[in-house]
Amino acid sequence: MKHFRYLFPLLITGFLVACSGNQVKPNDTEANASGASSSSRALDSESSSVGIEDQQGVMLDALDDPANPLSVRIIYFEYDSAEVNQDSLDAVRSHGQYLSVNENRMLRLEGHADERGTREYNLALGESRAKTVRDLLILEGAQPGQIEIVSFGEERPAVLGSDEASLQKNRRAEIVY
């Protein structure tokens, strides 16, 4: 299941942030991974191996640059809305352009909702959010085959809590490379 990441020339130096390396093919048989921890959580455990490469002076991917718009991996939404806010547009466009240039990279968009409203409606809403982001990526030149979509509705909140600040963090689409 593990794929080695492709390394691209370093754009801006900087320390590594915890990000990603788990490439996912569209329609990848996730069943193989079932039982393991949730794939979005798997990101954390992969960051350390990349860190060693950094110490050895290996060139870094733009994805790993904390100053690059690509470091934004979570897009937030308003209540019962699947529209991408103006504030998030730059980040989404950067990911689209990145995919367009790096044709062998893939990503998964995970759509989520806050706890308000019914679970089934929220599952559909999470998918709508992921699809809005996908459509923007494609506008920037990404190929549909580079993008996988999954919705978890309100089933996997990022934070617990019912205050507006918590709910806001849960209405999101996560970009997972």
Partner: peptide
């Protein structure tokens, strides 16, 4: 399951349940 379950519903004759499982990381 260690993955989410949702939307259980009885069959009309009460012999079965249908439900949604995320055991394969999707609904």
């Amino acid at each position: 399951s260690n993955k989410q379950l949702m939307s259980p519903v009885w069959s009309s004759n009460g012999s079965k349940l249908a439900y949604v499982s995320f055991e394969n990381e999707r609904s």
